[in-house]
Design a protein around this nucleic acid. Sequence first.
DNA 1: GAATTTGTACTGACCGGTCAGTTTAAACGG
DNA 2: CCGTTTAAACTGACCGGTCAGTACAAATTC
Lengths: 191, 191
Amino acid sequence: MSARTTATKQKLFDAALKLVGERGAASVTVDEIAAEAGVAKGTIYYNFASKDALVEALLRHGVEILAGRLRSAEEAENSLEALVDEMLGFWAEYPAFGQLLVSELWRTPGQWHGTLSLLRDDIVSIVRGQMKRLSDAGRLPEGVEVGTASAALFGTLLVIALDWQVFQPERSRAQVRDSVMHLVRGLGQAR
Amino acid sequence: MSARTTATKQKLFDAALKLVGERGAASVTVDEIAAEAGVAKGTIYYNFASKDALVEALLRHGVEILAGRLRSAEEAENSLEALVDEMLGFWAEYPAFGQLLVSELWRTPGQWHGTLSLLRDDIVSIVRGQMKRLSDAGRLPEGVEVGTASAALFGTLLVIALDWQVFQPERSRAQVRDSVMHLVRGLGQAR
DNA sequence: GAATTTGTACTGACCGGTCAGTTTAAACGG
DNA sequence: CCGTTTAAACTGACCGGTCAGTACAAATTC
């Protein structure tokens, strides 16, 4: 794939992410994405088979970035706090991706349900790794199951980030992070 | 409003909720809703000004039911646990409403953003009431703010319920409720 | 108390606009 | 050159919304 092609796809991802995140995949037109990206409509269809294929690639691309960052964060500091912090940072940086994900992830037989299930597992399994460490160290309250807890933590961080941006934008990222940390630390240090 | 009209609107709500929850408001057609409800398309436009107006009415209707239940639950047993249990029960009963809400609630300038902000406040303020009780009794960990925590709890319950239904349907409602309760009890009894 | 009017709820064929996707011929760039 | 991009016109299916007309029951009239 040439550098030129890569640049074009990146422009399309940026444009699509902005519009689709704001208004939903179904109500954004291909012409709008092309205009936002400063690219001819034909270019979209040269690079992607269809509108759906573009959105699916966007989903994969976003999750890839998130997963990469989480692994880096884990490498730098092997703790649940580091993971939470990195994740919150990601949502702050790509709020539109959070909106896209939250509105598609739990759609039962949606067109991207298969893809999204796999992508969700990518992220949740990283979180689960850290949870497992806590569990093995006996630092998880009894009655809390690792599988449920890691899925819940991922979902919770997602909605807290969205809620913060949409309904409580006056709060600083540090404030939100600290609030979440209190909860997570409480979890990690119970009993 | 006649009994006949009420029945028709109820059929329309049921049909719209099912389809819109599954596939999103934008990609469901008015003809489909009419067919699902066993009603002619014209009937929809006789009862509602537009497709958007139908969805907005649906949103209000759903939140009304939820808020009503939460207030009843509070009356029966004045505790955070009772609230959580009732809420989880509601999401279990109306999963499609959860899907609708989660995919529209955080859309920045969406067509229903104004309405949804108010509806969200209805629910969150009920939760906040219980949180405040805990806070006044000194049973909330320091550093946790009531406003943030109640919004977070509402969002968290929503996504946990959705995640359960979509990705972990093998878990029983009791299991999920108990997991959440562990977290909430932990919160309520800290320090 | 039969005939007629009125109001309300509902029907479904139809219209006009929108949008995904196609086509083509020409330009660009490495 | 060949892979990529452009610009613009075009197609056709689809969909929100309309509207003339139907159904029917309750009120009104004679």
